[in-house]
Design a protein around this nucleic acid. Structure first.
Lengths: 122, 122
DNA sequence: TCAATAGGGGAAAAATTTATCCCTACGTGA
DNA sequence: TCACGTAGGGATAAATTTTTCCCCTATTGA
């Protein structure tokens, strides 16, 4: 595993939440787990743009940060289910607020984001 | 400037807000600008762990995403002031929600984050 | 003249995160 | 036997972000 060389800042609430939510797919993972998509393969189907590998890595971080729990059923073929911890559940309203703002401003956001990506379309 | 090779996903609200808020210092920049710290040098003093360079880069992105405006006063020595656009102001409650969650769970977050950074302290 | 403050940016290195590729294990159904 | 589904991980490459270093303009004060 990669070992950080620069320690993160943990000064304020924004630093702290950033530390656990920063990761390309983490918020979406929490979201889908909250919606009831618990198994790794389900999550991978829900987030097809991410590879299995990254999802596993980010799920493990979420688990280490105590936002999700991983339950392993000793059956064959293997079965694993993730769910939000009580702590993780307290994040749901925050994620909802993020998603709502994005949805409410969808058009404008899409415009400014694409504008910045393709500066030629002045 | 770096040019992306992989296009971002812009499917849902979470993708969209992620695209404009992703960046190590962006949320803090918005926060301090909202609090009235408008000049680049003030922001640099407020966020001493970031270099001038990154702050400039991220401020420019925030500007291109229409979350902040940059006003240049034609005086010597130069004077520049950032402020939130109306659009940017609509993000304030969302950022507040993030910061509050982090503040409310400060102890626990600090614990789990440090635990993961130094696994030897089992 | 030198240092400090104000604002900025290019180039390259370093850090960090994601993606790619390949491998393990077991059981089921064709 | 072969392919597929389930779950997961190591090694390495590629992408992306952030840092470092250096340079420019102009004024003020020591």
């Amino acid at each position: 595993m990669y070992e950080r060389k620069i320690l993160p800042n943990l000064n304020c609430g924004l630093d702290l939440i950033g530390e656990v939510l920063y990761g390309k797919w983490k918020i979406r993972l929490l979201w889908f787990i909250n919606e009831g998509h618990k198994r790794p393969s389900e999550l991978q189907r829900k987030i097809p743009d991410a590879t299995r590998r990254v999802l596993n890595i980010q799920l493990k971080e979420l688990e280490e940060h105590e936002l999700v729990i991983r339950k392993i059923y000793p059956v064959v073929p293997p079965k694993v289910e993730y769910s939000l911890t009580e702590f993780g559940k307290t994040l749901v309203p925050v994620i909802t607020a993020l998603g709502n703002w994005g949805d409410e401003n969808e058009e404008r956001l899409r415009k400014v984001i694409l504008q910045r990506l393709n500066p030629e379309n002045h």
